[in-house]
Write a protein that binds this DNA or RNA. Structure first.
Lengths: 192, 192
DNA sequence: CCTACCGATCGGTAGG
DNA sequence: CCTACCGATCGGTAGG
């Protein structure tokens, strides 16, 4: 049990260091120092530096899927989109360090994990794209350039990890409502 | 003259490698190999690896300032904003590799350059914020949360370096018009 | 622009 | 979980 606690601790410290300094710039000696053990001891919990990165990236990927897959697909597309945005932002807000690693350090995954990661991310983005298509088909959304809108959607959602502060004046609900409002009123047909 | 050509070449190859693999993950040996010289030869053109990063980051910063400072400040805020967005995106589109380095690898600048870089970036963002404030004062823009809007604005503009292809179906003008339309119609008061 | 080389640091292992 | 250590690679320099 104690071993498991230490493993969780190593992972949390690694998330923080990988986010702040980057994966490549963080040595196992840095990590060991921040945890408070000798470098060699880390290898009792993770078989390599690469394995730590894998754990961080894929565990968070699971959380993103869980959050979005639980949503009701019978709702109107605009409501679905609002809920999906909120769900996505909640995962980021609850995992700020891991999100930073997930979004910027994933490219240092080694094969076959890198390929796997890209596939998962593509699959995840498809869930949002499906909602947008549905909205266009139902005449609720303008006939947008789908790729452009998808990229803007994800860039604005994902950037939140960089500035969101749990103690700041904007709550997660505030943020997701404002972002949804901004993106929806830019895409939604004016009901003349 | 030949020396200068080689220096430019080193810098271009470095922009590409730093962007693709990251600054920390690119060794001077990698760079030398890609350029086609011995590692020691690089030091005839740049005094250190850090100096290459500085050149890339600050030269692009200059370009951003030049592009935005040339705009007419007497125009209506919504037109000003549209032009500023277009100018910003043009710089990114013309410097895709450098933009990737500028946006992701700046944190590996050493002091005092790191502090200088942050100040410049803040000063640059202020130019956009001023336009937004003006728009709110004139009653053209909704009374938005300025910080939130600024962050969304820059995240959606800056992400473009990641997916824009010079030969793709979306031109720079297409992109800046679509982004402006998306962001403005989300922020502009409906003229009832 | 190259050959030759430096001390420092890296990820990881053996063995207890 | 630690001591002791490995070969590999790093950024950079001396000298020509």
């Amino acid at each position: 049990m104690k071993k498991n606690t230490r493993k969780i601790q190593i992972r949390q410290v690694a998330q923080n260091l990988f986010r702040e300094r980057g994966y490549m710039a963080t040595s196992m000696r840095d990590l060991a120092g921040a945890v408070g053990v000798e470098p060699a001891s880390l290898y009792n919990h993770f078989k390599s530096k690469a394995a730590i990165l894998q754990t961080i990236c894929f565990d968070l990927a699971d959380q993103f899927f869980e959050a979005v897959d639980g949503l009701d697909k019978a709702l109107p597309p605009d409501v679905q989109l609002a809920k999906a945005i909120e769900a996505h932002i909640w995962v980021i807000a609850k995992n700020l360090d891991a999100s930073g690693v997930f979004l910027h350090e994933w490219r240092f995954l080694d094969e076959p994990h890198l390929t796997h990661f890209k596939k998962m991310r593509y699959e995840y983005e498809t869930r949002f794209e499906r909602i947008l298509h549905e909205g266009v088909q139902q005449g609720i959304f303008k006939e947008i350039d789908m790729k452009f809108y998808m990229l803007t959607l994800f860039s604005s959602m994902n950037w939140i990890y960089d500035w969101y502060k749990p103690d700041g004046k904007l709550s997660v609900n505030d943020i997701s409502q404002q972002l949804t409002d901004l993106l929806l009123n830019g895409i939604k047909k004016a009901t003349v």
